[in-house]
Amino acid sequence: MSELSTLILPAAPSLGSLYATAAAGKLRGLLPGSKPAARTVPQVEHRLESLPINRQKLVDYQRLMGDTVRDELPSVFVHGIVFPLAMSVLVRDDFPLPLLGMVHLSNAVTHLAPIAPSAVLTAVAHAENLRGHRAGTQVDLLVEVSAGTELVWRSVSTYLARGVFLGERPSEEARPHQEFTHPTRTASWRLGAATGREYAAVLGDYNPIHLSAPSAKVLGMKSAIAHGMYLAGRALAGAAPHGTGYAWEISFATPVFLPSTVDIAITSALDKTEFSGWGSRSGKPHFSGTVTPLA
């Protein structure tokens, strides 16, 4: 891997302006199906020296997720505060894929140690591993958060630009059709139509596909869908340990259209906790993941 250059951002960019930039980019003609402007990700990392941690937002977040209010930053909350930094990488002019309409496939986070709200955090983000997918092109977005010199949080988010292909289209592998049999339910989430707006109000991610049915339809969705990180946050509220580091990952199968009821299974094994969610009515899998405490 070649050396990355570093761009230090003066302050956390506002997501609103980032989405505006992204929309403008879309208008410029980066429509699904068209060829990307470049075939590589920019060899640059964006860096933010002091992450803003708003304690009221932390409380709001913990309440929203049904978690206990305590002086530890939940992993998804960290994801939320570094998200504008990550976005700033995705909306660069030289980024090869369109942001809007991009699908979040999975996340893998290593939350190395508990993070106090008073911690002074720096974060750095870059994209890598641009590669083909049978439905388009996927890319990993890496974000690392440090408290002082200590790396405390590292995330790899994988996104898919549907219908965007780099060079050769990968051959359509006939995936064996898997009948999904869900595990025994341990919980049910009733997700109201306002779920996306409630999440946005706390973590500032006003992505239209989460906000309302009309705004989602503009972007080609049949209705608003639950934010993937909201789902991850709810799952972690029930499954993540406290007072220790942990690794977790989540992958998304089908979107959760709002409103809906999601049935949940959270099962603890010896070394890890598995969780999954599926449509209470449809039975379709929505997501699954694991949480592994770091000894």
Partner: peptide, 19 residues
Amino acid sequence: GEPRTGMSMGDHQSITTKA
């Protein structure tokens, strides 16, 4: 409903009953 699971007691028991 159970606060942590959002499921009614009856729905919980239905799982046990079936098991």
